[in-house]
């Protein structure tokens, strides 16, 4: 997204994005943290307030549009991305944010999701991944892990789940990032990077649902385990993790391997989020416990022409070429005749 500096340099604060509606998530829900960080990030974007648009689908996550004091559309289940695409094309100046969940986005809205990744319209998608249907009270979602007992899989889920990053990058996303819901600094940073990214940005937030999947991300996000179990990626920096950054990654044949670093950083890979070839980004996005740490931060960030730019460039050049100044010129072009 191109920066659209506020007129008269009106400085916006987090409060400017807090709506007057009471927030109704379960106390302790990870959604609160996403809301707070989003409001902070919005304030830092230096974008005219009237050009923010929040779009959501249906589910716990999607209530967020009512809590953000921006233009907003709380649409229908699975369709937020389609609504947002139409909006962005209609007015390319808008700073468009889609809020969706693992059910909303990866199940009923899956088609729109892959096409948004492919098209690269300049919209930002935040997926609240709690691996369950919260609002309908506990059914399996496309990211529910194998073995998890849910109301629709009482004997434990046996469906193979989606890895959101794999789907996104596989479908051509130019920006994919992952953050835990409890790392505020990283979340805000990733949101800002998504804002500055030209193209579809996908952010997966590992979000805790205190009611139905409480603690499902704990192994990754827990205070004691996170340094070993998260690899926080930074463009141009070596991939190190673990206490005192003792662990690194290397390539062995066709596979990634984690290994202990001997004295220093020399033997680990360096992160290149801007590499157009998506193979390494896919491999990073797919890393899972226990073999690997889970990759966090911006995994992929590649700039190409965006769909919204291409559409408007095509319109601009068609207008330049044509002799039509108005619809009347079109109507009178070709074979017409006059009756006196």
């Amino acid at each position: 997204m191109q920066t659209d500096v506020t007129e008269n340099n009106t400085v916006l604060t987090r409060k400017d994005f807090v709506s007057d509606q009471a927030v109704r998530w379960c106390p302790g829900c990870g959604d609160f943290m996403i809301l707070a960080n989003m409001q902070k990030a919005f304030a830092n974007m230096n974008h005219k307030k009237e050009h923010f648009l929040s779009v959501s689908g249906i589910g716990c996550s999607s209530r967020i549009t009512y809590y953000l004091d921006t233009y907003g559309i709380h649409s229908i289940h699975g369709r937020a991305i389609a609504v947002a695409t139409g909006a962005k094309l209609a007015n390319p100046e808008l700073n468009v944010w889609v809020f969706t969940g693992d059910g909303d986005c990866m199940a009923i809205g899956g088609n729109h999701f892959i096409h948004a990744c492919r098209r690269n319209a300049d919209i930002n998608i935040i997926i609240f991944n709690n691996k369950i249907y919260g609002m309908t009270k506990g059914q399996s979602s496309p990211t529910t892990p194998v073995g998890l007992k849910t109301k629709t899989a009482p004997e434990g889920s046996y469906e193979i789940p989606f890895n959101i990053g794999e789907v996104a990058i596989g479908a051509g996303a130019t920006f994919f990032a992952r953050v835990p819901d409890n790392d505020h600094a990283l979340m805000e940073d990733v949101m800002m990077q998504a804002y500055h990214h030209k193209g579809t940005s996908v952010i997966e937030v590992l979000q805790n649902c205190v009611i139905f999947t409480d603690g499902i991300h704990d192994q990754i996000t827990g205070r004691d385990t996170r340094s070993d179990n998260q690899l926080i990626l930074e463009h141009g920096k070596p991939m190190v993790f673990g206490s005192e950054n003792k662990m690194g990654l290397r390539v062995d044949g066709m596979r990634l391997l984690k290994h202990e670093l001997e004295n220093g950083t020399g033997q680990t890979l360096e992160h290149d989020a801007a590499e157009t070839d998506s193979q390494m980004h896919l491999a990073l996005a797919k890393m899972q416990l226990p073999e690997f740490p889970v990759a966090m931060g911006v995994i992929r960030k590649v700039e190409i022409n965006t769909y919204s730019e291409s559409v408007h460039q095509a319109i601009a050049s068609a207008k330049k070429r044509t002799s039509f100044k108005s619809v009347k010129d079109l109507f009178l072009s070709g074979n017409t005749w006059e009756i006196e």
Partner: peptide
Amino acid sequence: IAAVCAAIGAAFCG
């Protein structure tokens, strides 16, 4: 579905 939803987004945007 995407078509009508995109049109709704565009309509909201004026």
